[in-house]
């Protein structure tokens, strides 16, 4: 027992394991310090450079911030307490200053938000389906042929590299104004993003079950369906839910170029009125997105929690 702490090296103190370790450790810390300082200097240099390019200066910020406030001031509703809950008068109008006046088009907004959610749901379902198939083609361990894998990976890169709004812009020309263009645009982008994530999950899956299915005479589809899919299913479900959150936000945006959903209304009220209707729509969008985020987060955690218990 005592020999552990009092053990002296057999041949000379220069080979003492502790001092050897200590000098090695000091050397490592010195090396790491050099790297860290270099990275820090580079970071600050790039930060200053980009600030200079974008002319991000305190005085411009100081001048600009109040104008944001100014805009929000102009689109704030002028609610008045005494008529806040007034209903329609004889002419069928809400008095100015009432909630009803502010949200005169409430049911139209709700219809459009519902359309937005349905767009996101459709796009998520189709996108996940396509991503699952493409992930098997793209993953290096399951691709049927090398060139198929390369082609699938490049295709997925293209799909997720181009923003939804660009796809939507082009598709509005192709299939006309409306939700269809938006759904297709989001499907393409979601397929690209989910396909990449899913193929990484597939690459981490065990190939043993695949060998097993191969050995019973199963074809490639059966090897994927029985050998890989059960392994990756919990991850896929979680990714699909997470993508649904993103797609809700995306489908609220594609409306700006005429591809359906609440975005079209937001764009309309901003460019035509810029009055309290802007905040009316914005508040509804934020509420919807927050609600769906919370809901899907709950579901995902329940899913992951269930998995990790096993």
């Amino acid at each position: 027992m005592a020999s552990i702490t009092t053990n002296t090296p057999a041949n000379g103190s220069d080979k003492d394991p502790v001092s050897l370790f200590e000098s090695h450790r000091r050397q490592m810390i010195r090396d790491r310090m050099v790297v860290n300082v270099t990275l820090g200097v580079l970071f600050i240099a790039f930060l200053l450079w980009s600030a200079w390019i974008s002319r991000f200066t305190p005085d411009r910020l100081a001048a600009g911030l109040p104008r944001i406030m100014e805009y929000f001031g102009s689109v704030m509703p002028s609610l008045q307490w005494d008529v806040l809950f007034e209903s329609r008068d004889e002419a069928g109008r809400f008095p100015p200053g009432s909630l009803g006046f502010w949200y005169n088009d409430f049911w139209k907004y709700i219809r459009l938000i519902w359309e937005t959610i349905r767009m996101a749901l459709t796009a998520t379902l189709i996108g996940t389906g396509l991503a699952v198939i493409l992930a098997f083609l793209a993953a290096r361990n399951t691709t049927p042929a090398h060139w198929v894998g390369v082609a699938a990976r490049r295709f997925l890169e293209f799909c997720r590299g181009v923003p939804e709004i660009l796809f939507a812009l082009v598709l509005v020309f192709a299939v006309g104004i409306g939700p269809l263009a938006g759904v297709i645009a989001i499907v393409i982008h979601a397929t690209g993003a989910l396909g990449k994530l899913s193929s990484e999950v597939v690459e981490n899956a065990s190939m043993r079950p695949v060998d097993g299915i191969k050995a019973v005479g199963g074809n490639w589809f059966e090897q994927m369906r029985y050998g890989i899919l059960p392994q990756v299913m919990p991850n896929y479900t979680s990714y699909a839910l997470w993508r649904f959150e993103i797609n809700v936000r995306a489908s609220a945006v594609v409306g700006f170029v005429g591809a359906g959903g609440i975005g079209a209304e937001l764009s309309h009220v901003i460019s035509f009125y810029s009055d309290d209707r802007v905040t009316a729509v914005l508040i509804l969008i934020v509420l919807t997105v927050t609600m769906i985020d919370l809901l899907s987060e709950r579901l995902r955690h329940a899913l992951i929690g269930k998995e990790s218990l096993k």
Binding site: P209, G212, A215, V216, G217, G218, N219, G227, P230, Q231
Partner: peptide, 19 residues
């Protein structure tokens, strides 16, 4: 695949689908 179906294989690590 028909031949693989005719000659079954058992593996060291079983190669079953765990889930």
């Amino acid at each position: 695949r028909e031949w693989r179906n005719e000659c079954a294989m058992v593996f060291q690590q079983f190669n079953l689908v765990g889930r």
